[in-house]
């Protein structure tokens, strides 16, 4: 099991704007005023980031139909079966940009809805960026892989989080906790399965 820490020096603006709902409409731009808003919020957020991740490799075994033995848990999922096609190993990871982002969003949630919305979008983009870095590191270490797959994608149940957390000792290693409803806090956190191609 490996625990890694890292940093981000900027946040992908295009992605952040997409999360804020800007993308996909021809001729519509974010505008000068919201550029200033996003600049300000990016500066605030970068100061609060403390990206961390934990990961480990597990063997994959297939059972009857959509049954999978993931090494840390058994699960039934068609979509994950398809995703793990051609893989006899997987790397399970959990990653977070830290509790500072939540705190900042909570602060502006009370003070400025516009900033809260921008921070929310920037935080989501930052979490994805950090996951990309972690994912790249995993590929470097273990070789070519399938696109990462998370609980809630397709028919992979959210309940699987309950088994991922002890398997990676997520709370102890990177401080992410699960609520009673199986949501992760800090919110800008991701757990995912990366199938390693044989």
């Amino acid at each position: 099991m490996k625990v890694i820490r890292g940093s981000l020096d900027h946040i992908d603006r295009k992605e952040a704007l997409r999360y804020a709902g800007y993308a996909g409409v021809a001729g519509v731009t974010a505008g000068e005023e919201s550029a200033a808003l996003f600049d300000e919020c990016e500066r605030l957020l970068l100061k609060e980031l403390s990206p961390a991740a934990v990961y480990e490799c597990f063997p994959v075994r297939r059972g009857e139909g959509d049954e999978l033995d993931l090494g840390f848990a058994k699960v039934r999922s068609n979509s994950l079966c398809r995703n793990l096609n051609g893989c006899s190993r997987l790397v399970l990871f959990a990653a977070t940009i830290g509790v500072g982002a939540d705190r900042l969003i909570a602060k502006y949630n009370r003070l400025s809805a516009a900033r809260a919305a921008a921070l929310q979008a920037l935080g989501a983009a930052a979490a994805e960026q950090w996951c990309d870095k972690v994912n790249a590191r995993i590929v470097l270490e273990y070789g070519a892989a399938r696109p990462r797959f998370s609980c809630g994608y397709g028919d992979l149940p959210l309940k699987l989080q309950r088994e991922i957390f002890p398997a990676l000792q997520v709370t102890k290693n990177i401080g992410v906790t699960l609520t009673d409803g199986d949501l992760m806090i800090p919110e800008k956190s991701v757990t995912a399965i990366v199938g390693i191609l044989d």
């Binding site: 804020a20 709902g21 800007y22 409409v25 519509v28 974010a30 505008g31 005023e33 919201s34 808003l37 996003f38 400025s112 809805a113 516009a114 919305a117 921008a118 979008a121």
Partner: peptide
């Protein structure tokens, strides 16, 4: 009509 987006709407509101 999607010619303007959430953060702008909220900035106006503020």
């Amino acid at each position: 009509s999607k010619t303007l987006f959430l953060p702008q709407l909220l900035m106006s509101a503020e």
